[in-house]
Amino acid sequence: MQNNTQEDIIEIEFPIKSGDFVAAGDASSKTKKLLKQLGIDPEIIRRAAIACYEAELNLVIHSLGGSLILTITPSELVIKTQDIGPGIADVDLAMQEGYTTASDSARELGFGAGMGLPNIKRCADNVEIVSELGQGTELTITIKTNK
């Protein structure tokens, strides 16, 4: 990873509320616009938008709230979510397609199909999950922009 001077790093934080389906998707659509303004490659924007949306929705559906922090450098994007919530009991299991712990109310809205984390993984160059049961989860998604 290259060293960046403070000048060319941009960091933006979006607070995310639990169960707020009205605002769900705001952080990812704002992220998408920012990336377009930066002139990032469209394919990378598409991947970032999908990963960002899934990560954002995870917080809305599963957590008690938290934030999404977008960090952009000339070489990569880092989308990090930090939440207070139940945590993930088995990270490997959560990575499997179709595995879900979403509530019925979320599923009635068409969410919680168990595709969130697998989708994120497909779009990212690197995914890290640090989770503590009963405390919360920190998810870090890295997408390289200068491949």
């Binding site: 303004q37 930066l38 952009i72």
Partner: peptide, 21 residues
Amino acid sequence: KPILKLDANINIAIKKMKEME
């Protein structure tokens, strides 16, 4: 015909975006 791009150079674009924020 993208209109949103702030600058062709990403380093400059980032600087402009920080200033914009």
